Amino acid sequence: MSNGSLKLRRRCQAVIDRLDLPHALSVEALCQHLAARRARPLRLHTLPSEASTHGMCGLWLATDTEDHIFYEHRTAPLHQEHIVLHEIGHLLFNHRTMSMDDEGSWGALLPDLDVRSVQSLLRRTNYATREEQEAELFASLLGSRIHNPYRQQPDGILGRLEVAMGVDRPRDTP
């Protein structure tokens, strides 16, 4: 694992650790937890069918009062979950906003969107940027936590080495 990859993993894991999540977790419970913690509603929506023609499979939209995450509904449930977690990564890392200059295309995609109320808008199309890679690794790490909630936490120097190298331990049943 390169030094850059290790730093990225540590940043993502630090954000997850600060969330103070319960062991048993679902995406829905995570959204409720984040909404309560941030004192802002977090709503999930399926993307309109037109989104795929724009190359989108996920989108985070922050208005003045709430957050919205849109995800592709014509894919497997596990992939839908990963898309949502990826967008939550953008939200928690407070990644930069896309340009809202082309209101016409956003109006066609999200006709009820009041562009004046939008604070942040990020869509997921590729993984070429640092922000996309950060959100993607965040989603993978948190998804692993959701699907393996009782993984034993490593102890001592060996445990710290495992964490640093990204070693996943086998699941221990409760």
Rank of each mutant, 00 (worst) to 15 (best):
L137V: 06
W106I: 05
R74M: 11
L61I: 02
M56A: 07
T75H: 00
H86G: 03
L42T: 03
T53F: 14
L42M: 06
D101K: 05
A76E: 05
I83Y: 02
P174E: 00
R10Q: 10
L141P: 04
H45F: 11
A128P: 12
R160L: 14
A24G: 01
L19K: 11
I69G: 06
L158M: 12
W106R: 04
P149S: 00
S2C: 08
N3I: 14
E50I: 15
R160A: 15
L158Q: 10
L141H: 11
C57K: 01
D101W: 01
S2Y: 08
P48D: 00
F70G: 00
H90D: 10
V115D: 00
L59N: 04
E28I: 09
I16C: 04
I16W: 03
L78Q: 15
P154T: 05
H147W: 01
H23K: 09
F93E: 02
P41G: 14
R116P: 02
R171L: 13
G104N: 12
W106N: 06
S2K: 07
S140A: 12
D168G: 13
L42S: 09
R151T: 06
A164M: 14
V15E: 09
H147V: 03
L137W: 07
V115L: 02
C57H: 10
S52Q: 03
A51K: 00
A76N: 10
I16M: 00
L19G: 09
Q80I: 11
H45N: 01
P77D: 01
G143R: 07
R96F: 02
L91Q: 11
L42I: 05
E136I: 03
